[in-house]
Design a protein around this nucleic acid. Structure first.
Lengths: 245, 245
DNA sequence: GCAAATCAAAATGTCAGACATTTAAATGTA
DNA sequence: TACATTTAAATGTCTGACATTTTGATTTGC
């Protein structure tokens, strides 16, 4: 395991990259134990703190996990869907918030991706998914609900829709898109009237899935996209009016 | 900026989380400079190495960048699409390789997502995208091409297809799905006959985009998915026959 | 002889202080 | 003014030590 001397980066970054490579191309397998920090320090000819910085970098990407104690150490971590979701969501959220991604663009991407799921969801949805979706629709209809709770429920609804496609890779990819939209959605003030409209469309989508009708589901999703876009544009126009930088 | 004492994690993880929170919910903005390591050490009441480990964690997620020298330090990093692509691809690749995701599942997810792009791509494709796609088709038809080069060209072709949708958020999301499939695709040995078939479908897709015909593009993509699946299943069956663990 | 308590070892987690290196601004000089 | 030099501030790295956690081995008590 050698470091690449041509790149002029921090030693800890080089070492992290060397270990990352070993993991990614399979020279180290899941649950395999890395050498101890002291051993790594000797192998790479650096000090222990430098090795530790490298290991923290890898830990931040969930590539390794560490355990203290006698038979502890650093182990190659099996990247779970859960952890992958988390990183996806963090990255997507930051990407959107830091790059002035317009509401239109984010909205378009999100619904395009969701429509990719509907044919599969219409085929494979089971009772659990439908129950979750109906439960969230019911929650969304409650009168005293705050805008934030409404949004949270919306996310849950759409995640159920995505999960109904029965493809964990799709769910993972979509998690980022759906959740990353939430900060943007949270800006919207949902009037009783707009909530009613959204609930109606959610119901149409759920009915279509229940009926195994992908066409209907897709049409309803299109309508929901158009309506969301309309709501969002109103907000964005208002905001840019207030901050005409 | 306080650490959360209830969670029993490493100090460096707690500090990293505290700073991450500050960035994610906007208390620190892009290009803002963090306090120096010594100052952070004092603020959090820990030693400098501990602070450094925390900063390395954040650097590994591209949340901060550091610069040496007099007016150097750690700065909140604007997460570029480029960096986000990279992380997305690493995570997706590992997720697939470590969780025994089947060829079928990965393939289905990938083509479902790609089909999400085709309507937009058919509307917005410009001459550059079409030129790239045709160039890659031409490369794929060259006789002496290795399987790996064929796969690489395939990735470039599909990335152009995705980019043609003209939505950077979509491109970002799809990068992971397309690239993460490559290790699986690299297992396939492409015969002259299967290459011919793929090239034919690629041409159909490109023609459809050129003609602004989303329906044709979608149909061709469906056919490509079916064919890829067929090729992959052959390989997977062979492999599982050889390693009947 | 067996179970519980104790101890030892190995590993990560943390700290303190020092030195090296890099960078840009401040200063001095022709 | 233009250029060279110095200097200060920051990160990068090293050394060595101690704290803490965990497991296995050992000892002790009954």
């Amino acid at each position: 395991m050698k470091t690449d001397p041509d790149r002029k980066a921090d030693l800890s970054a080089q070492i992290a990259q060397a270990i990352r490579d070993a993991i990614v191309d399979g020279r180290m397998i899941v649950d395999e134990r890395l050498p101890s920090e002291a051993e790594l320090a000797e192998q790479f000819d650096v000090s222990r703190p430098t090795v530790r910085e490298a290991l923290k970098r890898l830990a931040a990407q969930s590539l390794i996990r560490t355990a203290r104690g006698a038979f502890g150490g650093a182990f190659v971590n099996r990247l779970s869907y859960q952890e992958a979701y988390g990183q996806q969501i963090t990255t997507s959220t930051l990407l959107l918030s830091m790059n002035a991604v317009g509401f239109d663009t984010a909205c378009e991407a999100r619904y395009a991706l969701e429509r990719a799921c509907t044919p599969l969801a219409a085929r494979r949805r089971d009772a659990d998914h439908l129950a979750t979706m109906r439960a969230e629709i019911h929650r969304q209809a409650q009168p005293g609900l705050s805008d934030e709770s409404f949004c949270a429920s919306d996310v849950t609804f759409h995640r159920a829709l995505v999960d109904a496609a029965g493809n964990p890779v799709l769910s993972y990819q979509l998690a980022g898109a759906v959740e990353a939209m939430q900060p943007l959605m949270n800006m919207i003030t949902f009037t009783a009237r707009s909530r009613e409209q959204i609930i109606k469309l959610h119901t149409r989508i759920t009915d279509a899935l229940e009926a195994h009708d992908p066409g209907q589901a897709e049409t309803a999703l299109h309508a929901l996209e158009a309506y969301t876009l309309e709501l969002g544009r109103g907000i964005m126009a208002e905001r840019s009016g207030k901050h005409p930088s």
